[in-house]
């Protein structure tokens, strides 16, 4: 049972200015419930940082630091080093957080360094598939054919012309002890993976699919539904890996055609206009099928 008073004592508190229905704030709340108060967090510049810490406010009840856009992993490395020096590392979780842009694009070098040095840090990437904080520009994790303000659709374009970067595989290539992909649509899965990460020493990577209301252009109530559809279509495979080996995948219970997922989102609206768009949807279906095959999702 949870009382009203208790909800107000959550480690990531209400009162932040995230959009109504933001799946990123939902995930942070769920993750913090597991990590508990003996946690120090860093954040990259991005939506989460902006909506959770407008001075003098803060939604964090754990020690938290934001420095810059691309250095969350390096700042967390420094936090870990300081704790080690003080002999306090055991018993304190260090997490580094960033958006897909702060993680897979501009922050990749710092993240790679943190992985390679194997700092005892859990890095969490909140993947909403674009630079949302600056107004929905494309990132290396923007899905194929998604409209963003810098990969717009038009007479000559179906939106983002590149598939999503395989960021979890990049993490795995560092042979870190734990890599996991989860989703705001599956809170138990998410919390289970955070719990597991806490038991592992060394660098860990967790990527969470977090639908974004204004960036993906849908009604706020669909945040969870979309996150689940991304998984059930095969477009967002959830799995766990130890070092370079995948050790578990979340099976698809009932395969859903990608169209069901795409049609709820304004960022794919242009694919539903004509035959050429149809053909693009076919391509996306093929990508989902390949994922199902590659990761053994069914």
């Amino acid at each position: 049972m949870l009382t009203k008073e208790e909800t107000r004592n959550e480690l990531f508190t209400m009162g932040h200015t995230g959009c109504s229905g933001c799946a990123q704030s939902m995930s942070v709340k769920l993750i913090m419930e597991i990590l508990g108060k003996n946690t120090i967090a860093t954040s990259a510049t991005g939506c989460l940082e902006v909506f959770s810490t407008r001075w003098p406010e803060s939604s964090w009840k754990i020690p938290w630091i934001h420095s810059l856009f691309e250095n969350s992993a390096a700042v967390a490395s420094g936090v870990e080093a300081a704790l080690k020096y003080m002999g306090k590392k055991d018993g304190i979780n260090v997490i580094a957080q960033g958006g897909d842009g702060g993680t897979a694009d501009i922050g990749l070098q710092a993240l790679s360094g943190m992985f390679e040095r194997n700092h005892d840090v859990l890095y969490i990437c909140y993947d909403n598939g674009a630079y949302m904080n600056t107004g929905y520009q494309r990132s290396g994790l923007t899905p194929f054919d998604a409209y963003t303000t810098t990969s717009p659709s038009g007479k000559e374009s179906f939106g983002n012309n590149r598939p999503k970067k395989y960021m979890p595989e990049i993490a795995m290539a560092h042979r870190i002890p734990y890599t996991a992909v989860s989703s705001a649509g599956y809170p138990m899965d998410l919390q289970k993976k955070v719990k597991k990460a806490m038991t592992i020493k060394g660098a860990k990577y967790l990527q969470v699919d977090v639908p974004c209301v204004p960036g993906w252009k849908y009604e706020p109530r669909y945040s969870v539904k979309l996150a689940q559809l991304a998984v059930q279509t095969g477009l967002y495979p959830l799995f766990e890996a130890e070092y370079d080996k995948i050790i578990s995948v979340k099976k698809i219970s009932k395969k859903v055609p990608v169209e069901e997922y795409l049609k709820l989102q304004g960022r794919f609206k242009h694919l539903f206009k004509d035959e050429a768009g149809r053909a693009e949807i076919e391509k996306i279906q093929k990508m989902a099928d390949e994922n199902i095959e590659r990761y053994g999702l069914m």
Partner: peptide
């Protein structure tokens, strides 16, 4: 997303905190 719902599994009485609910649905 706001963490404003509270309630009790046993009594099955759940409610929300209107001070912070953003009405996302």
């Amino acid at each position: 997303p706001e963490g404003v719902i509270y309630g009790d599994k046993k009594t099955k009485i759940y409610d929300f905190d209107p001070d912070y609910c953003k009405g996302c649905g």
